[in-house]
Amino acid sequence: MLRVDALSKTYATGDKALDSVSFTVEAGQVVGLIGPSGAGKSTLIRCVNRLVEPTSGSVHLNNQAITGLSRKQLGEMRRRIGMIFQEYALVERLTVMENVLSGRLGYVSFWRSFLRKFPAEDVQQAYALLDRVGLIQHANKRADALSGGQRQRVGIARALEQNPELLLVDEPTASLDPKTSRSIMRLIVGICQERNLPAIINIHDVVLARQFTQRLIGLQDGKVVFDGLPSELDDSVLTRIYGEEDWTAIEGDRAEDAESAEDESVA
């Protein structure tokens, strides 16, 4: 379970990116974080594992504080938090296998990692994960030889190689086509359910967010302006998060979503 309390972040430039944000995410719950560009979605996700240092407030993972940890303790904490990035953030010139195994860096000594002598069970797990994301035959290819969708699957495998207790996902589909986006979202959500993982998914595509997440948090100018079920996301809420606009196209999708959800429940 992730608990965020009164989290604020003011950058050195004076920009207030987060303003007293609070919420909790239960195990197995996939939360979509939506909001306009610059609302603080990326900052919020990065404050959780302190890639960005929050100014005030606290973050707890399974009742253990992340804020206030020393450098060494933070390293140990980060091992427990998997992160999936926009534009994949793979180390392009390393192989797929090295990228996945880098998820174990927090657990092995420098020399072992330098010599690429990872424990056998780490390697076995990496192969199993590559098999799960459908890339086992690409294990020894360089990451930059893969397509966008494949790279994001490697990114997912890297995060899972950590055996995380929480997934932070930053715009996982920002540079993917609609079909690949959906298969990547399905994979992430499926894995969270398999492993009972809490996840925060930062996403700008409202339709996609509504289709795949169980709960949505709307950020606007660093504040939480909506926290509820995807089905509750109507005209007035969208306007509250993003501002005045004609939302009929998205509304249309919502009706279809509701129908298909019914179909699925019937089937």
Binding site: L51, R78, F114, L168
Partner: peptide
């Protein structure tokens, strides 16, 4: 590229490992 370094940092890697991998 900062994001590749960020990704390695996020795994809990030590400083030396970030240099080596990222």
């Amino acid at each position: 590229d900062i994001t590749q370094i960020e990704a390695i940092t996020a795994t809990g890697a030590s400083r030396a490992q970030v240099v080596n991998y990222g």
